[in-house]
Design a protein around this nucleic acid. Structure first.
Lengths: 182, 182
DNA sequence: ACATTTACATGATGGCAATCATATTTAAGT
DNA sequence: ACTTAAATATGATTGCCATCATGTAAATGT
């Protein structure tokens, strides 16, 4: 049955939201189109009315998720603390799309890579602005180094079993960054 | 046809070597059992004589690849330089299994996670030893922070398209680490 | 009101991949 | 030499998933 224009727009938004959470949680390959549609409260048939293919969904979901990804207006050190926390590590579906999906983008389409490129560019710029005063060159270097360490730490913390080493990776990376940022 | 004991052992080794390169290049999901066996010069049928399942192959390949992963006896700064280099970024199949596979391990079996845990523990210990003299606590913190940044940087550099931002991520992360290690 | 468009549902279709069944060949043990 | 066990090959089987085909009903425009 046909639905109203706004209903359709809302459906589309829900598909993207739900896809973002499912992809972050289980990975692109492990989530079927039918699963996304079901989680959005629809059936698989209507999918190709919204997206041209699953690859298209992946690319649009990335752009959607990375655009929403920001760290508000709190202190940067608070952002780092919550990012490098067990709560974030243990909830990829509500977590950072970069930490959850960046590594998988290598195997995706150019459109997906383009979305990631833009998202990374924006995130580096945000961190640069949040960093305390220092030379512009140093600031950019620090923004990139810090972001790489944060993403890498969460990925590593999620890859190991048992909390000991995993917690330590988060905690020590936070300490390592703090000695640099203050 | 049956082959000699040593032939079988060599076949097994070749399967693991080939699987390691294929998995690093294309990801666990995108590589079929048949593809691994073909690349090893065998057919798919014999696979289950060597491994109980594809999951088993994944876990054993990880242990195999991470055990071989070390950085010889050169200067640590040389290791960092070659790790954060376009050549490494562009050749995942010959590259570091942690950078290539760590993020995918979240979706694998406990055996695979155990292999990663052990591999990470060993790598942190190696970096600690390679670091210049300073307090033991600082050394461990630096080892973990540096390794997280290295892995994160390669993952990010591989996720973006076009060399500009990608090269910069590698280069700036190297600079960021160098200001700490000398 | 009516015609038409269209968003979604139901129900194929086709391909691929993991795993299993069986056959074949030959190394190993006696 | 002969028997036996085992490694690999060939050939199902089964299930899942992306995508497509068609139906249906409601929204939109006149």
């Amino acid at each position: 049955m046909k639905v109203s224009r706004e209903q359709m727009a809302e459906n589309r938004r829900r598909i993207l939201d739900v896809a973002s959470r499912l992809f972050k949680d289980k990975g692109f390959d492990a989530v079927s189109v039918a699963e996304v549609m079901k989680a959005a409260g629809l059936t698989h048939g209507g999918f190709y009315g919204h997206f041209g293919s699953k690859d298209d969904l992946v690319a649009q979901t990335l752009a959607h998720a990375l655009a929403a990804d920001s760290f508000g207006d709190g202190q940067f050190s608070d952002f780092v603390r919550s990012y490098l926390a067990p709560r974030h590590r243990d909830n990829p579906d509500n977590g950072c799309p970069t930490a959850g999906l960046a590594a998988a983008i290598r195997h995706q389409t150019p459109a997906a890579k383009a979305a990631m490129t833009e998202g990374l560019r924006a995130q580096i710029a945000r961190i640069e602005q949040a960093l305390p005063e220092q030379g512009a060159a140093d600031k950019r270097r620090a923004a990139i180094g810090i972001w790489a360490a944060m993403v890498g730490a969460v990925i590593l913390a999620r890859a190991v079993d048992g909390p000991q080493l995993s917690d330590e990776v988060l905690e020590q990376t936070r300490g390592w960054i703090d000695t640099r940022v203050g």
